[in-house]
């Protein structure tokens, strides 16, 4: 097996693309949206991986290599973040034709249900898993992530190309039980132009993230914590300083007790104005009592506004 892997691995391993954005085929099979620049560029990017996938679909060995190369490192980090117990019940939304995420989770002993809203993708996935993942605990169903019911699952995985991602995530958070985890993959940097991201600013302080090469990151949210504007646990929506639009002001309701933050005027009851924001998740600039303060985005998302 080892020999096979290196043999097949070398021709398809472009340098440094271990974490290349995997394209889990299209999860939206409904009506093809008019091709905006995002989609067109995305399909060029995705084309390369489509080809690899088409190859992988045909050959069990290639599929295994593809899984180990592109999915295993990402999934390992995601599973670490989610701290799943063995044999957890997992829902995968947007599993695609080549359901690597679902299969890999099953391979690690979890009980996996995978949904995709494209019936063709679902049947392709079934065929694939009969060949390459026989005996694993994984089922495929056709269904839309926006209507999925996550109740009873320990974790929900939302794949890179699931769409509309923000809605799917919201739905998962709304329906799953307290303490369950939602893991999703977000494009970052320039890749956000090709794939649809979940609004960076709207992830609360408890979001755990793990970045991969080539413009992708995995984010994990645990239901139950107070999570910014995501109405996690049905609790009331709360805006954090990180979500405050530039030019608007808000009054601080809760702020961590930190000598520097507090000394710079970030204390409950103070009025803050958001001035500007940096790209690449850099700090945002705010003004309190006429004083300008640069605040790390993650710190800003722990400052709640009324």
């Amino acid at each position: 097996m080892e020999g096979e892997r290196t043999q097949c691995g070398s021709p398809i391993m472009p340098a440094g693309s271990i974490d290349a954005p995997p394209v889990e085929a299209s999860s939206k099979g409904r009506s093809p949206a008019p091709l905006g620049p995002r989609h067109r560029a995305g399909s060029v990017l995705g084309g390369v991986f489509k080809t690899l996938e088409a190859l992988a679909c045909r050959s069990t060995v290639l599929a295994r290599v593809y899984e180990e190369l592109f999915y295993s490192p990402t999934l390992h980090r995601e599973m670490d973040m989610a701290e799943l117990a063995a044999g957890s019940k997992v829902l995968v939304v947007g599993s695609g034709r080549l359901p690597m995420t679902a299969v890999h989770l099953a391979r690690h002993g979890h009980d996996v249900t995978a949904v995709d809203n494209d019936a063709a993708a679902t049947s392709a996935a079934r065929r694939f898993s009969q060949r390459s993942a026989a005996g694993l605990n994984v089922r495929f169903e056709t269904g839309d992530g926006v209507d999925a019911d996550a109740d009873g699952y320990d974790a929900v995985w939302i794949t890179f190309s699931a769409s509309p991602k923000q809605k799917v995530l919201q739905r998962a958070l709304d329906t799953m039980s307290e303490g369950a985890k939602a893991v999703f993959r977000n494009p970052r940097g320039v890749v956000t132009r090709f794939y649809e991201p979940v609004d960076e600013e709207c992830l609360g302080p408890s979001a755990k993230r793990s970045r991969h090469l080539l413009g992708k990151e995995s984010v994990m949210l645990a239901k139950g914590a107070c999570d910014g504007p995501f109405s996690v646990g049905g609790s009331q929506r709360r805006i954090t300083l990180a979500c405050l639009q530039c030019g608007l002001q808000g009054v601080i309701a809760e702020c961590p007790e930190d000598p520097v933050l507090n000394a710079l005027g970030l204390r409950p009851g103070k009025t803050v104005v958001s001035i500007s924001r940096q790209p690449f998740g850099g700090p945002l600039l705010a003004s309190v009592d006429g004083r300008k303060v640069a605040i790390d985005a993650q710190v800003a998302s722990s400052i709640l506004l009324v």
């Binding site: 930190d258 600039l285 300008k292 640069a294 993650q298 710190v299």
Partner: peptide, 9 residues
């Protein structure tokens, strides 16, 4: 480090 810094005029 998380940046929290005053930006003087």
């Amino acid at each position: 480090d998380m940046m929290v810094q005053e930006i003087p005029e």
